[in-house]
């Protein structure tokens, strides 16, 4: 997390042509938010430490290149382009790609209303993807006692593989395979050893409905979910 520090050097940068004050090294997503600009994020979350930069949904333009805002740190004299029609469309396209690559089954997903991907789809006004669905043949891992891993909905964001550990400091989830065969594998023994609290944490950490707590289901009414108005 990029907390503002009194000791950090103050600098000036341009956000969509408007000069704003920043601290050197400040996370651009947080900086923009502080100045009223909401850059969409998916793999990023506040307080995560080192950013993953996997989803690229926070793509902005700097020096005529597309860069992910969550991995970019403020430097003196930066001139960043954020809110343009082409960038908005690019972000929307990235969300669409995530939808067509998986089999998200939103209507029956208990994460519906709490899902970051679904929320971004709605926020970016995605109605139908411009890309063909891939209908990948994926499975559900029912083997753990407390956790169900729904591979159909996994977007390979790395949150669970890189930002979650059990009480012994061991990772429970890891990548397996390469390219289009890349998937997240769950260590069943370690998953079974997780406390209820840690299970709740990792379910919350997953931005989609891939990691689910067994038996939790649709436990909250419509109107009380994260993204219900």
């Amino acid at each position: 997390m990029n907390k503002l520090s009194k000791n950090t050097k103050k600098i000036n940068i341009l956000l969509d042509g408007k000069e704003v004050e920043a601290q050197e090294g400040e996370n651009i997503v947080e900086l923009a938010k502080r100045h009223g600009i909401d850059i969409p994020v998916l793999c990023y979350y506040e307080g995560m430490g080192e950013c993953l930069g996997t989803c690229r949904v926070c793509t902005i333009r700097w020096k005529r290149h597309h860069v992910s805002a969550c991995t970019l740190k403020a430097e003196e004299g930066m001139d960043l382009t954020i809110e343009t029609e082409d960038l908005k469309d690019l972000r929307k396209a990235l969300i669409e790609l995530l939808f067509v690559e998986g089999n998200h089954f939103c209507p029956s997903c208990e994460k519906s209303g709490d899902c970051d991907l679904q929320h971004l789809g709605l926020k970016l006004e995605m109605t139908v993807p411009r890309f063909h669905y891939r209908f990948n043949n994926r499975s559900i891992n029912f083997d753990a006692d407390k956790i169900l891993f729904e591979h159909n909905r996994c977007i390979l964001c790395k949150r669970c593989t890189h930002k979650f550990e059990d009480d012994n400091g061991e990772r429970v989830f890891a990548f397996k395979g390469k390219g289009s065969n890349l998937s997240v594998e769950m260590n069943i023994e370690r998953a079974n050893g997780l406390s209820e609290e840690l299970v709740d944490q990792v379910v919350e950490l997953c931005p989609v409905g891939a990691i689910l707590k067994k038996g939790k289901g649709f436990d909250r009414p419509i109107g009380k979910r994260k993204y219900d108005e």
């Binding site: 209507p107 559900i140 029912f142 067994k214 038996g215 649709f218």
Partner: peptide, 14 residues
């Protein structure tokens, strides 16, 4: 078939 049981009331109504 192959879905978790708690999804049934929400999925099948579709």
């Amino acid at each position: 078939q192959g879905r978790p049981y708690w999804e049934a009331p929400v999925l099948v109504q579709r």
